[in-house]
């Protein structure tokens, strides 16, 4: 069985191809980089329109697969930005109709978890999923990926990216902020906000920007911000690990590339005798392969969606999705 998956929930337009054995035959991704500021959904969608054709062709070529070899088309229908989602959905529907193949709906967050499980060979991990759009701590229970903690406002990646922009640093901001943080020497006091199992980063952002105006050394600010944010995340992850008693802790999503975050979570895992694993860099950020692989898992369990019902779902929560392949 060969499934082609399309990702277009935010800044990345990606096409991946995966087979039943979990081999990733192709993973081609084009990333929209805003000229300044954050992602403008309509501009990102325009970018996706312009590259879609090339990305698809390249993926087929790399995989050495013809369109007629495909058994199903998987599409990330959400969550994400409407205009971006619609580009991928349009292409997926067109392919499904043209090839007369079933369309398989994939939740973007589930895909980040599944690609991490596949590539780190994890069985039943506690997953820390951190990206520009999501900050979720999740584990599988009773048929779904349940949420054991999340942000109440902005995502961790979004928070650090925004700070980086305010500091005049190029995007993506996380490595930039971390590089400055490594030169910091002092940790200043900032709001540390954990409410139950949920985190809030918007207050931290406001406080950080205020400190910046007061003229604090940028390196110290970055160090403080990174340490506070990761400590908040670590605390919630640690509690979730203690609560669920999972023996694996897996980090996934775009911010999984952060070395400091990896170090922090590795220590959390060690304290609770869990094995720590990180999704490989190429599958950390949004990518087509994760949609293709999750498409394989779903399609094997007969999950398809009629074209006329394949609406995009901007707010499709992770814990709304049934996950029969884990039951």
């Amino acid at each position: 069985m060969i499934v082609l998956g399309i990702e277009s929930t935010a800044h990345t337009f990606g096409v991946g191809i995966a087979d039943e054995e979990g081999r990733i035959l192709a993973n081609i991704n084009a990333i929209y980089v805003p000229r300044g500021g954050g992602i403008l959904p309509r501009e990102a969608a325009r970018h996706h329109f312009l590259v879609a054709d090339k990305v698809l062709r390249r993926a087929l070529k790399v995989a050495n697969v013809k369109l007629r070899d495909l058994d199903a088309i998987a599409i990330a229908l959400g969550p994400g930005m409407g205009p971006c989602l619609r580009v991928g959905a349009l292409m997926a529907r067109a392919l499904a109709v043209k090839l007369n193949r079933p369309l398989v709906p994939v939740n973007h967050c589930v895909a980040h978890i599944e690609i991490a499980r596949l590539t780190t060979q994890s069985q039943d991990p506690l997953v820390v999923y951190i990206s520009g759009g999501n900050t979720i701590i999740s584990a599988f229970a009773e048929g779904r990926y349940r949420i054991f903690g999340e942000t109440l406002d902005i995502a961790l990646g979004n928070f650090l990216d925004t700070l980086a922009r305010e500091l005049g640093l190029p995007q993506p901001g996380v490595p930039q902020v971390e590089a400055l943080a490594s030169k910091g020497t002092k940790i200043i006091e900032l709001p540390y906000i954990v409410k139950g199992q949920d985190m809030s980063f918007s207050g931290l952002l406001t406080a950080a920007l205020r400190k910046l105006k007061e003229g604090i050394r940028v390196e110290d600010l970055c160090l403080s911000v990174v340490e506070y944010a990761y400590a908040m995340l670590a605390e919630v992850a640690e509690r979730a690990l203690a609560h669920t008693r999972k023996k694996e802790l897996v980090l996934t999503g775009g911010v999984a590339r952060s070395k400091r975050l990896q170090e922090v979570l590795r220590q959390v895992a060690e304290e609770h005798d869990a094995v720590f694993k990180v999704v490989p860099d190429e599958y950390a950020g949004d990518n087509g392969a994760m949609i293709a692989w999750t498409g394989v898992l779903a399609f094997r369990h007969g999950i398809t969606i009629p074209i006329e019902k394949s609406y995009v779902k901007q707010r499709w929560r992770l814990d709304e999705v049934e996950v029969p392949w884990r039951s």
Binding site: I187, Y192, Y230, A231, A234, E238, E263, Q267
Partner: peptide
């Protein structure tokens, strides 16, 4: 004490 956060922040918290 938590090893995953910097000792300064750890003691303060």
């Amino acid at each position: 004490p938590k090893k995953y956060r910097s000792p300064m922040l750890d003691l303060v918290l």
